[in-house]
């Protein structure tokens, strides 16, 4: 009969359990006896042993979830918005977004959330969360004392001038490179042309 081997199914199962280290003492005796006397059993055992070794040596396959049937892009969408997607993944994600309504909705929602977060005012972390701040303060304290003593009367005179001004809003800080970037952008609009590239999405 095709597919029938001289080794019994029970013995094959015991060999498998032996390789897994899951045999009882009685079962172990049975396996040892078979491997001492039965050449077919020895051949079967070696075949099974080689198969297990080969399987263990196979590289781990990390199949991206979006390549699996019915897979979605949850993790890639965030990287896509951050511009951190690997080059080879970009066309796959773009294509998937073009075909998967669920992912398109999730993408739009994610984009909206990020825009809202970016629009929030900057928050200063509470002092008790900043463990380095106290250390820095300690370092600076000595220097500050020296400066204060040295400046003396000049500091008092300045305080009259600084006082009213320092209570106002913080001055805006702008980098000259940012201003040049703005000039470069507007100068790149061709005469009679329209600048319309306003979206982050390609």
């Amino acid at each position: 009969m095709a597919g029938v081997t001289p080794v019994s199914e029970r013995l094959v199962m015991l060999f498998s359990c032996y390789l897994d280290g899951a045999l009882s003492p009685e079962e172990l005796d049975e396996v040892v006896r078979a491997l001492e006397n039965d050449e077919d059993a020895i051949a079967e055992f070696r075949r099974m042993q080689e198969s297990r070794t080969s399987v263990r040596l196979l590289p781990l396959l990390d199949v991206p979830v979006y390549l699996l049937p019915g897979g979605h892009l949850s993790e890639q969408l965030s990287a896509y918005l951050d511009g951190e997607l690997a080059t080879q993944e970009l066309p796959i994600v773009t294509f998937h977004l073009g075909t998967c309504t669920d992912c398109r909705h999730e993408f739009a929602e994610l984009d909206r959330s990020r825009t809202a977060v970016r629009a929030l005012p900057g928050l200063e972390s509470p002092e008790f969360l900043d463990v380095h701040r106290e250390v820095k303060k300690a370092h600076r304290r000595g220097l500050h004392t020296a400066i204060i003593v040295a400046s003396g009367a000049a500091a008092v005179a300045l305080a009259f001038t600084i006082g009213p001004l320092s209570s106002g809003p913080e001055p805006t800080s702008i980098s000259i490179n940012d201003l040049q970037s703005r000039h470069t952008a507007i100068a790149s609009v061709p005469p009679g042309g329209i600048a319309v590239q306003v979206t982050n999405s390609p």
Binding site: D178, S181, A185, V189, P190, I194, V196
Partner: peptide
């Protein structure tokens, strides 16, 4: 840079886009 848009990769990547007709 081009077509009214400029992007720079410095310490903090940033970009600006002008919506205008020159």
């Amino acid at each position: 840079a081009g077509n009214g848009r400029a992007v720079s990769m410095g310490e903090e990547p940033k970009g600006v886009a002008f919506v205008t007709h020159q």
